[in-house]
């Protein structure tokens, strides 16, 4: 897909977004406090503005495509963008992979806690980026996670997700406090 086609596609998506946004603005409920100009006024204006600008972008791009010389220059520009010699498909796949690692962190961190979550994140990104031995990755992830925890949680006092550890710790300490009493009762019996 050439750069020009990308702009047309983007323009069409933006036109759809503008219409959807305007319809969303139109359904904003009225308030007695609004005093003449409602909460939907600016959003409606923005929806119309985006619609006009997106249409201009599509038209501008179509006109530019007709001028062959300019189109050639744009393609040259596009070739420059791919300078690192990686295909666009490969670039997007790598970006998606990194994004999925981030989603994995969000799913994990509230369950397993910050320190394990960061260790996972550091290990996953390093492995995904490639070029490191597994031993180095494990060492980096463990040391890195400890460093992040000490710096943010212990030194700076910044709250981070604790995961199930406090609950588990609570259950263990409760069980420990119950068990001597239980053994004492059994002994009397």
């Amino acid at each position: 897909m050439t750069f020009v086609n990308k702009d047309i596609a983007a323009g069409i998506v933006l036109v759809i977004l503008a219409v959807a946004y305007w319809l969303g603005a139109d359904s904003i409920p009225k308030s007695l406090l609004e005093g003449g100009v409602g909460a939907e006024a600016l959003p409606k204006m923005l929806g119309i503005l985006l619609l006009i600008l997106s249409a201009v972008l599509v038209l501008q791009t179509i006109l530019a495509r007709r001028q062959k010389a300019e189109a050639a220059a744009v393609e040259e520009d596009d070739a420059d963008d791919d300078a690192p010699a990686v295909s666009n498909y490969h670039k997007h796949a790598r970006a998606l992979g990194l994004l999925l690692i981030g989603i994995g962190y969000i799913i994990l961190v509230e369950t397993v806690g910050y320190i394990i979550g960061v260790a996972y994140l550091l290990a996953a990104v390093t492995l995904f980026a490639g070029g490191a031995s597994r031993r180095t990755v494990i060492l980096f992830a463990v040391l890195g996670a400890v460093f992040f925890w000490v710096l943010f949680v212990e030194i700076l006092g910044i709250h981070q997700p604790q995961g199930f550890w406090p609950k588990l710790w609570h259950q263990v300490t409760q069980a420990q406090s119950i068990s001597p009493a239980y053994s004492a009762t059994s002994a009397t019996l």
Binding site: I106, L121, L122, A129, A132, I158, H159, Q160
Partner: peptide, 25 residues
């Protein structure tokens, strides 16, 4: 340092910083 370590540390910094704003995943 190789780029892989830089990327990993920045990603971890972003998530650590963002969570600290409102303690919200």
């Amino acid at each position: 340092r190789p780029k892989r370590y830089r990327l990993a540390i920045i990603y971890a910094l972003v998530f650590s910083g963002v969570y600290s704003i409102d303690n919200s995943a």
